[in-house]
Design a protein around this nucleic acid. Structure first.
Lengths: 319, 319
DNA sequence: GATGGTTACAAACGCTCCTTGTAACCGGTA
DNA sequence: TACCGGTTACAAGGAGCGTTTGTAACCATC
């Protein structure tokens, strides 16, 4: 895998954006909290690294070059994702005393929560409040439900069709498992959707045994196949052995991109890849791969304390 | 704006993913091209920085902890965006002899091209071919058309309703200007769409004079207003003065997030913010803010040489 | 012409990271 | 039991990079 040796530092990109905002190396330096010389040097080295002139210096201020503006836009996106990671890390390290303990399934923790945390922070910060301190635990759906039931978590997020027993819940969105292949895979050129049988007999790149998405696919395939051919074998044998079993979706995605074969992944995890044509989605007929995303909590009809309410309200805006 | 001091290095995150893939510090080190000790130290410092244990070391291999898996997923997204930036930078620095010269409008260059470049690279690399070397120029739509006409660019990408004179074109997608506010802005709670008049008299955060999106909004407002009130003043006076005029969309977005007021931005630039509720979209009635994205080229009915054909075919997959 | 603003150059310090060398641990296997 | 191949951790040295401090040049304004 190629390593991003020519991509400037995150800090350097922040400096670049500061220059775009302020129109001066000096002012940018003050905003970032270093000296003007440091900013000058940083940008110089960033330009050398990138091989492109980013800043047009004049003796009465500096503006971004045309290329610099484009790079600044890209940098802003990168930093937005970085701040999601930052917020996620803050939620993950539980040294400080938790004000809100959230337990979420892997898919939600990995794909959605960072964005929620950032926007929640921004909203709170603007109201002049201290952003809520959130402690995040990522686990599978059953564990999440257990933790909410046992009071170890104030709020939980799980995927799946049913509401866990003894808990209140609200649907906050939907997710769908999708079949993805590289654009040069034969399936990418299909005009007709796959049948459940074809999907079941395909050698997929998948997560390791016991993963939520893998189980979800297996049961969905089982119900689809028994519906069409009732005398078929049990669920355990409805899928062909995996071409490759990996421990993270990131690894699965990388394997698919490297040509290892088709995979079934959450729509959320591959949305960007589909948009940029790195991956192609293959339609499947006669099988229900859609599932709800739910917030769950225990106790009253409405979620308990302030922070949990805030988060839930924030999240349900999307309906 | 807060700076991401607790986010590990991009290189450290790459190392983390390498460990996830290989299951061993040693193997990861070989893959990355450094010694095992370096990997050990990197991860150690990354864990200290993040405040979370990421890797579970045993004396016969290492796997990621539960938290580590979550972080790895976030890191993969960050690195994906970083590699887009990388591909964009490669296209921007024109030292090497160009095989394909692309000229694109700001919006497309900033929002869509990086993703295309990455997937194009991946596709080529897999076919065993050398990825096409692309030289990118970002400019406004008229300049792009000029460069394509004059042969300075092999392929162009512009937004706008009309096809530039004397050029072939193909619609490759759509974009829409959207009104966005912070979730705590009064407009966020409106049930009825804005009228063109309300939008015109609002003090918006906007780009500087001469920007494509700003012009597009002005003309769209002008036609909407003359349709409803034919005796209205000329286009120049259809909009209230800007609350703030900034030079990059990143700055505009930051200003909106900081509470400076509503803004009108391309849907493409705020898609992520809308998804994560950092920003809220406000509907507007009776005004057409939708525009096509077109690839343009000069000469025959189909785009000229191989590399340009490839890129165009790649991009039109999305229809 | 002085003043306040800008950027650039140069030297010294300090930190971070990498490499080399070494030790400890675990699980096979002879 | 001893060895070998695999793993990770610890320690010391060196190189590189970024930052600060000090200085100079440039430009506009008063």
């Amino acid at each position: 895998m190629p390593l991003s040796a020519r991509v400037p530092d995150l800090a350097a990109l922040e400096v670049l954006l500061a220059i775009a905002r302020t129109g001066s190396l000096n002012a940018a330096a003050r905003q970032v909290g270093v000296t003007q010389q440091a900013v000058s040097a940083r940008i110089k080295s960033a330009e050398a690294q990138a091989g492109v002139a980013l800043v047009a210096r004049t003796s009465r201020g500096s503006t971004l070059t045309a290329e610099g503006k484009v790079v600044a836009e890209w940098a802003a996106r990168l930093l937005a994702v970085a701040s999601e990671l930052d917020a996620g890390l803050a939620a993950l390290r539980n040294d400080h005393h938790a004000r809100l303990r959230v337990s979420a399934s892997m898919t939600i923790a990995e794909q959605l929560l960072p964005g929620w945390l950032v926007s929640l922070q921004a909203a709170a910060r603007h109201r002049g409040e201290q952003p809520a301190e959130i402690v995040l635990t990522a686990a599978n759906s059953e564990t999440v439900a257990q933790q909410v039931r046992g009071g170890e978590a104030d709020l939980g997020f799980v995927e799946g069709p049913t509401r866990p027993d003894g808990l209140r819940s609200r649907v906050i969105g939907h997710d769908e498992l999708v079949v993805v292949v590289r654009p040069d895979h034969p399936w990418a050129r299909r005009r007709q959707p796959l049948s459940p049988g074809e999907l079941a007999s395909a050698r997929l790149v998948s997560r390791e045994e016991g993963s939520g998405t893998r189980d979800a696919l297996a049961t969905a395939l089982a119900t689809a196949l028994t519906a069409t051919a009732p005398r078929r074998a049990s669920a355990a044998r409805t899928t062909a052995p995996a071409a490759l079993a990996l421990s993270t979706t990131a690894a699965v995605r990388a394997a698919v991109l490297a040509g290892a074969g088709p995979a079934v992944l959450s729509e959320l995890t591959v949305a960007e890849d589909l948009a940029s044509h790195r991956l192609t989605r293959v339609q499947v007929d006669g099988i229900n791969l859609r599932r709800s995303l739910r917030a769950i909590w225990s106790g009253g009809q409405f979620p308990p304390v302030g922070a949990a309410r805030d988060l839930l309200a924030h999240v349900t805006r999307r309906q």
